[in-house]
């Protein structure tokens, strides 16, 4: 089953290309976590500061003479950690809440969605700032902050289609023959709301990387000298004209990663589609 899913994904052009990009990303992240090559990411070579890309430093160096390529690799590790953990957390909690609320309906739906509204209606920056200020800066709390900001989004995205599917013939039929709710949710509703959710998850992964950039801008997120793509990009903003390579490479890295996640999502959607499976 796993094998056939993978094979079908590889036969899908979007899926294949997305998978390749994600593999590259994962490899970068794994390499980065060992801080092996070519330099330790926080090692300063002051005499080589602000070098454009060259033989020694293929992506140039920053104002401390740190190798941008090594930092991109380590940044992949950190961005992946933050992005994946935050999205997994937010989607698990959010989808559960949203589906249940729509399926059970009535007062439960009302109360749960109103509580979601409270958090949803809350400006993300204030929420993130408060969480990080209360718990202290650092990666774990950044993950938590991003997850809390995105949970209500997943809840709403899951709820809308569930409402729609709930009133279709096959769910009504399943209900009338006395299927258990859990069974209906798993067998009929989840597969039918997968498409919008997968699109949402692939979007959210890229959002998480971008949100992390925004938080780095406020001094939250990965603490220096630990790099993340977001913080590299926001640090480079004032150097755009002085040292464009500081901006181009993290920017490209983010773009390719986001591209990878989205293509992967597109591919998965095609593969998962229940009507294509049967």
């Amino acid at each position: 089953m796993k094998n056939s899913l993978f094979m079908r994904l590889m036969r899908n052009p979007s899926g294949a290309f997305g998978t390749i990009l994600i593999m590259v990303y994962l490899m970068a992240a794994i390499t980065g976590s060992f801080s092996c090559c070519p330099y330790p990411p926080d090692e300063q070579h002051v005499q080589d500061m602000l070098q454009p890309p060259s033989k020694h430093y293929i992506m140039g160096t920053d104002e401390f003479g740190r190798d941008v390529f090594s930092r991109i690799l380590r940044g992949a590790t950190n961005s992946l950690k933050v992005g994946i953990s935050a999205v997994v957390l937010a989607s698990l909690v959010g989808i559960t809440i949203g589906t249940l609320a729509a399926y059970i309906g009535g007062n439960f739906d009302n109360i749960v969605m109103r509580v979601m509204d409270i958090f949803f209606a809350f400006p993300a920056i204030l929420l993130a700032l408060a969480i990080v200020a209360a718990l202290g800066p650092g990666m774990r709390n950044t993950i938590l902050a991003i997850a809390i900001v995105y949970t209500p989004i997943f809840a709403r995205v899951a709820r809308g289609p569930t409402l729609s599917v709930k009133s279709t013939e096959f769910v009504t039929a399943a209900r009338s023959i006395g299927s258990r709710p859990i069974y209906i949710l798993r067998k009929h509703i989840l597969p039918n709301i997968t498409a919008p959710l997968i699109v949402q998850i692939s979007l959210a992964l890229s959002w998480a990387i971008l949100t992390e950039a925004g938080l780095s801008y406020l001094g939250l997120g990965a603490q220096p000298p630990e790099p993340s793509w977001g913080s590299m990009l926001s640090d480079s903003r004032m150097m755009l004209e002085l040292a464009p390579w500081l901006a181009i490479f993290p920017g490209l890295a983010i773009m390719l990663a986001v591209l990878g996640f989205n293509l992967f999502g597109d591919g998965l959607r095609d593969v998962f589609d229940p009507r294509l499976r049967h």
Binding site: L203, S206, L210, A213, G214, Y217, G230, L233, S234, R237, A247, G251, I254, M255, A257, V258, L259, N262, L263
Partner: peptide, 11 residues
């Protein structure tokens, strides 16, 4: 669309 999604808006 993909480019639009991958550019941070401050950038």
């Amino acid at each position: 669309a993909l480019i639009g999604l991958s550019l941070p808006n401050f950038w």
